[in-house]
Every structure is written in structure tokens, then in C-alpha cells.
Design a protein around this nucleic acid. Structure first.
Lengths: 222, 222, 222, 222
DNA sequence: TATGAATGAGGCTTCATTCAT
DNA sequence: AATGAATGAAGCCTCATTCAT
């Protein structure tokens, strides 16, 4: 947008400039709220704090999102949308099944690392028994394509005789997700209990390879 | 009136019976608080609610644990102690390296499944950046033995020529933990997005085998 | 019912009338809080009691003043401002140095007598080691003019040859303050131990003259 | 006492040693409570804190003093007793009336400086409207001698023709008390507002002379 | 006489939310 | 569409005091 080139940055001038920009206001609120919910959890986040970090006022949050839970729900949905959108960038068609699977795993690993706020939001959502995700049919649809992609690669590998039969694609996705997710979600406790080595650059490179290796070894014929 | 002695609620009669039982009171508080923190998180749990489910009063919680954070910290420590204690039951000495590793993985999977409150507590602790675990040196010591056990099995396997060299034991532990943990921690979102199949009895049996297979395949020589 | 409009308690009708009057609310809270802190001290005053005597609610006290200490600090600052403002009324320019000094002393005596809540607040602040006054630079400035005034009179007297040299103005102020302050602050214990005589109208007139005499005699050449 | 020569000092050994020493326990409690009440005020002092700093237990405080107010009352009485006892040391018989009065004033100044806890206790008692002092007839008697002494000096001075007639002795005592008391009680606010100069060693020497000068000048014939 | 455990009442503060303009 | 003022409900915590042994 043109106006972004403007170098003004004080909150006041922004405030003035952004008036009458409902979409801008909405997305600004969502961005702030994502960060606050991810940092403090649903109960721990403060509406006052969110509003203060926004370029608009508390009243607007209620105007757009109804209440705190509504805001959280919108943040959750938006986060899933953004993340799944980011995953579409990956191109695997030209690779062998093994390479494609490895690429997918390692990409997921990196993608999760780069989106810790999303990971934390999913942790929080699980703490809340997935209640808010359940209200959102849209998100489920988004995720089904993830399984399709895994299934396509796996089936290709089985057809080529390099992957063993009898594995359900969702389990492959499950393993990739689990390792990639845990790497971010449990970093604090794991590194405290077992050392920081796995979490510096070298350690993360090791784990990235670990994920690729382990999933390829898991599906490969012996 | 005489009849009142018989119709008193169980809580009242317990109260009378348990007076001057510090250890009982402490552990009762911890048990209730574990359940409440696991259910609602640190910010979400309510001291009033915890106290009400206790056989003692809110005042005693503060007497023994200082404040809400102190209670949470004690709950966290106690939970780690209990869980690590439970893990000691496993006997692997008579098994081949591969079988031992598989047993360890599957045992961990089952153990985590059986302790969802502990898993949730660790999720919550990670939401809080592991701040409370950091205050507790005792817990770190408890966990170091977990790595030793993995290392012993792995080294035996390498010596026997059945495991490949160059794998760090903590990465093996990491994989087992990640899969076992994620199975519980992310059940709600995962099952909503990708189906319940992996979480009924058959699905869990599949995943248990998956964990064993994947870790053994990961370390085995080709 | 129509009649309810007329029978509403004065507080209720005020409440309605005063809505959206921040300055009114603020000053009402400060007035009530001054009286309560002066009466019961910082620890002894009760936020509930303060709020109840206010035309607004407890919540608003926190909205405007943050917490109990913040309220106390604001009360202290406001009290100093009010009192120092009251002192400005005194006109001494046309008097001889001796008369001016006597007037100043007797005025201070009367002024302190008329502001027992302020005196008690200063007592309380001293009990708290002056910690809250230290946070307030504004108040210090207010008080420096008091010394200037004494210095002006004293210097005029020295120049006229009626006051002896070598006295520091702050010591003159100190004596006037001490006697005027003590008359209020220690009235209860002093009158209990040594009789009420000094504290009825005649006694206070005596002490007023005493203060004037003693300070004039102190500075005069023999 | 012989046992005091013993060099043991740990709380435990003292505890053992002081068993069955009711007077020692009482005076230990009073000493601790004096310090705590003087530091924090009546509402601000904490029974737990007092008990913890005692060589005995909370239960004993209630056993000996009934409740918090009773303890405070006993502390107040004891403090007055101790201070008035200290004042008896002063010997003025051999001095001229003027010198005796000056000595009395300067002695009082020093004596108050050396007993800030007593001063603070009297401040606190005045905050509480002297309610606890009123319950204590014993203390009043103690203080009457103070006036007698002033009267004796004053009458001697009048008889000798060096002091002017018509001054009530209690007013002389009032001035000495006020200046000596204020020097300690209002030190924190006064020094913050008007500078520290009067409160270092040189400043205090100046004020001591000031007190002597001002009272002698006040009573002297011109 | 002595002590750790226990307590009810009441204290201070914060929350999400709504009102008046 | 926007804002500062206002709110009731509920949160966490501390107090002086007493009990059981």
C-alpha cells in the first residue's frame, strides 16, 4: 500500500491515518491479539493490554469480535489460515517419493520453528480441549489437503516399490507433526531437563535431519 | 441434635477426622491442585475452586504453599516426581537392544497416555516458558537418569553391531518423548482436524507400534 | 414508580447527576481519602471504607489512583498543595521585621490548628520515613518559598539592626514549624500527661503569643 | 545476670536456656514489639513478625499480653517508664537558673535524639488519639515530676530576678518538648523539604544550642 | 509452659465488559 | 466509527487469633 511508504510512525498519526479502515483495524487487532494470546494464554491475556497495543480502542475490539472468547476464536482461525497458506509454497512434484517425504518433513520442521506463536496457540487450544476449533468448520477443510499430499507421496512410493505397504498416511503426517511441533512446544522444559544442545543451530540441524531420516526409514522397504 | 452426627456431609466428618495431619493436608491440596491446574491452566485455575475441592480451607493452601504460584510450583515438582518414579518400574535388562528400545518407547507411550494431567501440566509449564521448572534443581536430576537408560541400550546395540553409530542418545529420547507426548497433548486439535481414528483403542495400538517401529528402524543398521 | 424518583437516597441521585465528571470524582475521592488516612493512618485506613464514603465506587479509586499507596501519595501531594496555597494569603510587607516575624509565627500556629488532617498526614508520612514525599519533586518546590519568606524578613531585620547576625533562616522556620506542628500533633499525649489547660481557647491564645514572643526574642539583638 | 556472660548466641541455645524465665520472656517480647511498633505503627506491625523475632512463640505473646492492643499498651507504658527513668540522671542543682534551664533543654534534645523509637511510639499513640495512654494512670504520675523540675528552676530564676514573671512552667516544658520532639519526629519530611543541613552533626549541634538559647531568651528579663 | 497447625473474616486488587458522549 | 469513564463480580491474599497436642 502506498501509505505504508510514509515514514510517520507515531501512534497518533497512525490513528488519524487509519480511520475509516475497518479491515486494517481488524487485522491490526488480530495481530496484536495473536501475540498476546500466544504469550499469555487465553485466561492470561488481558483485554486492556491487547487494546493498549492496538492502534484502536477497547471498544472496537468488542465491536468487531463480541467478547474475549470471540476474539480468541478469530485469532485461532486466522492463525490456521495463515499457516496453512504458508505451507502451500512447497513444491514436491519433481522429487522421488523418499526425497519428497524428507523434504516435506524438513519443511514442516522449519515452518513450525518459524511460527512459534502459532504453535503456542495450538498448545493453548489443546489446553482448552479444542473447544474453539470445534466451532470452526472452515479450518478442518484447510487441513484435509495436508493429508492428501502425504497420501499422494506415499502411494507413489508404494507404487514404485520403495515404500512398504500397510501404513496409513495420517500416521505419517502424525509423526512429522509430532516431532516438528514438540520441537517448538516443549523446547523450554526439554532443554532445561536435558540440555540446550539440541536447540542451538547445530542441534536444530541435527533434529531436522533426524526428522527426515526417521520418517523415510519408517516407510521404506527394508 | 443426635441425628446431626450421622447426617453430616462426608467433608465435615473428614475435616474432624483429619485434623492435625499436615502431610495428609498437603498431599490432598496437591492432588486437587494438580487436577485443577491441569484442567484450567495456571491463570485459569481458581484458588477458591481448588480450596472448595480440598478437605481443608483456602487459608491452609496459603499456609503451606505461600501463594498461587508457589502452589503451582509444588504441583509441578510433585508431578515430575510421581511420573519419574512410575518409570522406574520398567525392567529392560534381559532384552535385546532392539527389543529394549521398543519396550522403552511403547512403555513411554502408555505411561504418558495414563497421565494426561501430567502432560497437560508440562504443556502449561511450557506456555509459561518453563519458568517454574527453572526454579527446581531437584527435577533436573530426576530426569538425567532417563538419558542414561537410553544411552545404555543404544551403546549395547552399537557394540552388538545392530545399531548404527553416530546417534546421540538424547535425540533418541527426544523422539520417543515427542511422539508419546504429542499423542496426548495435541489429541484434541489433531483428532478434530484429521479424524478420531488414531485415538480409539485400535488407533492407539497402531500408534504404539508406530512409535516402537519408528525408533527401532531409526537406529538400526540397514 | 414515580415516587421512587423522589425518594432515592441522596447518594443515588448524586451518582446520576455526577456521571462523567472525572475531576469531580477525583477530588471527591481525594477528600474522602484524606480524611480516612488522617484518621486511621496508611495501614489502618480501609479501601472499602473510603469507597463507601465516596460518591463513586471502589473500582474508580483504582482506575484513577492505581492502588492504595498511589491514592495515599496523591492525597499527600494534594494536602501539601492545599496547605501551601493557604499560606500564600498572608501579607507581611508593610510590617516591621519583628512584627512580620511574629505575624508569620502566629499565622502558622493558627493555620496548623485549622488543618489537623494535614498535620496528621505529615505525622503518618514521617512514620513511613517520608517515602512517599520523596517520590514527589513538585512538593519540594512548593516549600522552598517558605524559607525565602523567612529569609527576607530576617535579612531586613539584620539590615535594620534589630535582629542579630549569624542565624540561619531555616532554623527560624524550623522553630516556628516545630512549635506550631507539635501543638497539634502531640496534643493528645501532652494534654493527657500535663493537663488540658494549654488546649482550651485561653491556653491556645497563650501558646500563640508564646510562639510569637519566643521567635522574636530569639532573633532580636539584646 | 550471670548467664548473660555466656557467649552462646544461637536462638536455639537461648531458647533452651531461657525456659522457665517468665520475666526474661516478657521483656524480650516487649523489646521486639517496641521495635516493630515503632517501625511500622500499630496497624502496620505484624504479630507474626513480632513473634518470629522473639525468642519465644506467638502463643506466649497472647498468653502474656492478651491481644495485639494489649501488647501495644504494655509497650507504650514500658517505653514511657524507661525514658522517664533515663531523665532522672540529670543533675541541675548546682547550676544557675539560666544554665540549669539550658542544660535541661539540651539534655532533652539529646535524650530524644537517642530514643527515636520512643518518639515514634508517641507519634503513633497520637495518631491513635492517645487512647492507650488514657488507660494508664501510672504514666501520668511519672510525668508530673517533669513539670515540677521546670517549675523549680523557673521559680528560682524569678526569685533571683533573672527570669521574668508570668510564665507558666508547663509552657516552658512545652517548648522544650516541642523542639526536641519535632527534631526527631519530623526529620524525614523536614529534611526532604528543606535540606539535610540541620540533621548532620554540625546541624544538630546548632539546633541543640538553638533550643538552649531560645528557651533562655524566652524566660530572661530583657 | 510451649509449639506447629489451623482458621474465618476481611483486606487489596483485577477482570471483562458496558455506558455516555 | 470512536473514546474515556464507569462498573459489578470475582480474584488473590493477609490478618489476628485459637486449637490440639
Amino acid at each position: 500500500m502506498d501509505s505504508q511508504q510514509d515514514t510517520q510512525s507515531s501512534k497518533d498519526s497512525q490513528r488519524t491515518r487509519w480511520k475509516q479502515d475497518p479491515e486494517g483495524v481488524r487485522s491490526n487487532i488480530l495481530a496484536v491479539a495473536l501475540s498476546e494470546f500466544a504469550e499469555h494464554g487465553l485466561s492470561g491475556a488481558r483485554m486492556d493490554e491487547i487494546a493498549a497495543k492496538t492502534r484502536t480502542s477497547k471498544r472496537m475490539i468488542y465491536y468487531y469480535f463480541g467478547d474475549k472468547n470471540g476474539l480468541y476464536q478469530s485469532v485461532l482461525e486466522q492463525a490456521y489460515r495463515t499457516v496453512r497458506h504458508g505451507e502451500k509454497e512447497l513444491q514436491l512434484d519433481d522429487l522421488s517419493p523418499a526425497d519428497a517425504l524428507r523434504q516435506l518433513a524438513e519443511f514442516t520442521f522449519e515452518h513450525h520453528r518459524r511460527n512459534p506463536d502459532f504453535i503456542r496457540l495450538v498448545m493453548i487450544e489443546n489446553i482448552h480441549h479444542g473447544d474453539y476449533l470445534k466451532n470452526s468448520d472452515e479450518i478442518r477443510a484447510l487441513n484435509e489437503t495436508a493429508i492428501s499430499r502425504v497420501a499422494a507421496i506415499y502411494n507413489k512410493g508404494v507404487a514404485a516399490g520403495v515404500f512398504r505397504k500397510g501404513i496409513v498416511p495420517v500416521a505419517i503426517h502424525w509423526q512429522i507433526s509430532a516431532l516438528s511441533f514438540f520441537n517448538v512446544s516443549n523446547r523450554m522444559t526439554f532443554s532445561h531437563l536435558f540440555g540446550e544442545d539440541l536447540f542451538d543451530e547445530a542441534g536444530q540441524a541435527l533434529l531436522r535431519r533426524h526428522i527426515g531420516d526417521s520418517i523415510v526409514r519408517f516407510v521404506s522397504v527394508d
